[in-house]
Design a protein around this nucleic acid. Structure first.
Lengths: 255, 255
DNA sequence: TAGTGGTCTAGACCACAGT
DNA sequence: CTGTGGTCTAGACCACTAG
C-alpha cells in the first residue's frame, strides 16, 4: 500500500490530514456548516476512521471544529474572548453580558491543596460556592469558590445552609470585604465529570483552569478554581481594550 | 468478556483507568520513576493498548506523566510556575533565571492577522524575532516577536539582516521605546513543527498560546506570539507574590 | 428508527533511544 | 541489536440525537 507514493512520507498521515482539512475549512466551509460524517471522510481520504479522528481531534483542540454525538461535526465560530483580568479588582471578573451566576453553595472541607493556601485546617468546613459564567448566552466556565467562614463573619446563621440564595449571600458578604489584589495562574486540565456537565462537554474535555487567590486584609480571603472551555474560549488579560487576533483566515457565516 | 462484572460500567474504561492510575501515581510512585511499558500495563489491566494509551494521554495532558519514545513513561514533576505578567511593564517578561533568549531574526511579511493588528500592510516586511524562554534550565516557551520597522527607526541598516545579533539589536531598540501597556490573551493550541522542535516536543503537542500586544506612543509597537509547553507550565499572572497550589497530593522525589 | 460521534479491540509496522 | 512509545488498520458495538 503506497501512501500516495513518492515525496515526504516522513510526516504522520493524521498531521498531513489535519493540514489539508484545515485549509479546506478556511476556503470551502462556512461557520456552522456541517461536515460529511467520519466514515465518509475517512473513505474519501483513504485512511482508517481512527486516523481521521486523530486529525479531527486536533482541529477540535484548536477550536476549529465542534463535534456532537448523534448530530455531527460542524465548523466552529472563532473563539470568544473572555476577560479574566480587567485591571480593576472586583469579585465578578466582568460584568453585564459577561457575569458570573451563583448556582449553589455547600459547607464542606476543602481539598488539601486549597486548605493549605487558605491557611485553614484540612478538616474545617468552609463555604464552597458554585458559579457559572455566561458569555453570549453560552456557559463558558464553571467555578468553585472556596470561602473560609472567617472571611464572611457577618453571614447570618439563619440563612439556608445551601442553595443559590446562600451562594449569593456569601458573594455579597465577600464584596464588603474589599480587595487588595489577586494572584492568578492558568494551566491546562481536563474537565471533571461535574464541570463537564455544566459546560455541556464530555468528561475529560480540555479546559483552561484559572486559579485565583483573592487577597484582602493582608491575607488570602478566598480561592477560586474556574474551569473554562478550552475549545471555545480565549482568555484575555487586558491593561486596556480588547485583543482581536484571529488565527484563521476570514470567516463566512452560514445562512 | 465481562468488564470486571457488575457495577457502574456506564463509565468509559479509559476514564476509569485514568482514575485508577492517577491514584496509583499519588500513592505508589515517586517523581521521575519509570512506569511499566504500555504493553504490560495494558495486559495488567486487561484492556487493549489503545485504551490504555487513551488514559495515559489524559494524564500527560494534565502534566502528571511524561512520555518519551524509545525511553518510556515517567512520573512528571509538578508543573513549574512561569510568570507571564508581573504587573511591571517590561519587554523581557521576567528576569534572571526566567529570561528570554534571542535566537534569530529575519525580515519577512507578517501573517495577515498579525499585520492587521499592527496596522501595517500584509506585504510589508517587518522584523520577526525568534526567542526562547528558559526556566530551570528547560525550554518552556518559543516566541515570535513581530516588530514593524517603524517601531525601531534607529536600527542601523548596516546590521546583519538576520541572526541572533540582529535579534538582540531589535529587542534593545524596542526597550528604548518605553511601554505604555500591554494586552494579553491565552488560548489552547497545538505546536507547529518549528515550535515543537524548540520545545523538544512532537508536532501537535498541546501548548498555551500567549498573544501579547505591546502598546507604545499611542499605538501597537509590536506583537508577540509565545507558545508555552502546556504539559509542564503553569502560567502565573501576579499582582504580587507567587501562587502555589498543587493539584495533586504531596510528592516524593526519586532517589 | 436511522445516523452520528464515542469507545474498544487485536493486531501490525515504524521511528527513536539506548546498548 | 532490543525495547520503548507513535502511528495505523479494519473491523465491532455503544450512546446519543433527531425525525
Amino acid at each position: 500500500m503506497g501512501t500516495t507514493q513518492l515525496e515526504t512520507v516522513q510526516e504522520p498521515k493524521y498531521w498531513h490530514l489535519k493540514t489539508v482539512l484545515s485549509e479546506a475549512l478556511d476556503s470551502d466551509f462556512a461557520v456552522g456548516e456541517i461536515l460529511p460524517n467520519e466514515r465518509e471522510l475517512a473513505a474519501r481520504f483513504g485512511v482508517a476512521r481512527a486516523t481521521l479522528r486523530q486529525a479531527l481531534e486536533q482541529l477540535e483542540l484548536e477550536g476549529r471544529l465542534h463535534r456532537r454525538r448523534g448530530v455531527g461535526t460542524t465548523v466552529a465560530p472563532p473563539r470568544v474572548g473572555v476577560a479574566v483580568s480587567t485591571g480593576r479588582h472586583d469579585w465578578t471578573g466582568g460584568e453585564a453580558d459577561e457575569a458570573w451566576q451563583s448556582v449553589d453553595c455547600e459547607s464542606a472541607p476543602a481539598p488539601a491543596a486549597i486548605a493549605a493556601t487558605l491557611n485553614v485546617g484540612g478538616e474545617e468546613p468552609l463555604h464552597i460556592v458554585r458559579r457559572i459564567r455566561l458569555s453570549h448566552g453560552q456557559v463558558v466556565a464553571a467555578e468553585l469558590l472556596y470561602v473560609p467562614s472567617s472571611s464572611v463573619p457577618e453571614l447570618s446563621g439563619i440563612d439556608a445552609p445551601s442553595g443559590a440564595a446562600r451562594a449569593r449571600n456569601v458573594v455579597r458578604e465577600l464584596h464588603r470585604l474589599g480587595l487588595d489584589g489577586q494572584d492568578r495562574s492558568v494551566e491546562l486540565g481536563s474537565a471533571r465529570a461535574d464541570d463537564a456537565k455544566e459546560l455541556d462537554r464530555l468528561p475529560g474535555a480540555p479546559v483552561l483552569v484559572v486559579t485565583t487567590r483573592y487577597l484582602a486584609a493582608g491575607g488570602t480571603a478566598a480561592v477560586s478554581v474556574a474551569t473554562y472551555r478550552a475549545d471555545t474560549c480565549r482568555l484575555t488579560f487586558g491593561d486596556s481594550g480588547d485583543l482581536e487576533i484571529s488565527h484563521s483566515a476570514e470567516e463566512r457565516v452560514a445562512s
